[in-house]
Amino acid sequence: METSIYSVLAFYVLAAVILGSAILVVSMRNIVHSVLFLAICFIAMAGLFLILDAAYLAVIQVLVYAGAVCIMIIFGVMLIQRTDMKQSNLFNRQTFMAGGVVALTLAVSGFFAGTTAWADLAANTPVPEDSLGQIGQLLLSKYVIPFEVAALLLLVALVGAIVLAKEVKANVDD
């Protein structure tokens, strides 16, 4: 339980920034503006990870999401979009149906989030100070096989992205 007034305030401010920028990501009509608000959302989420005592994940969030993923998406947009940028991010015809599905999802998940007895599950012990050292040791001992598989996944994704995005020859015999 966080009881300090500053962490409570920080949670509400960060939650407001995250939700507001996420709504703007979805509602903006210019896709470049959408990606900008996506970066703001990711950085606010890194702050939320700091409140949750996950400093390493906050750094990774800024590096990978706010840095790499946003820049890569901007590159993708600039390589693809040649028409007017102002109308590049519109809604399709299923918007009302999507709203219904989303309202249902939100109602069900909100109901279960509200009725589950989270207090019975809580461990009530603080997170250890040296979390990064322990994560490193766990990643290279107990979770070493998933770690290596993740490395393999990144290699396959790298090669796959290059092969897919490479210029395709229309006729090999030419």
Binding site: L19, I23, V26, I31, S34, N89, L90, N92, G99, V101
Partner: peptide, 23 residues
Amino acid sequence: VVLSAILFSIGLFGVLSKKNAIS
């Protein structure tokens, strides 16, 4: 959990209702 549920719903709405594949 509630914050995460709302954020997930916003993302789901975008996935279902956007025209642009990058979006």
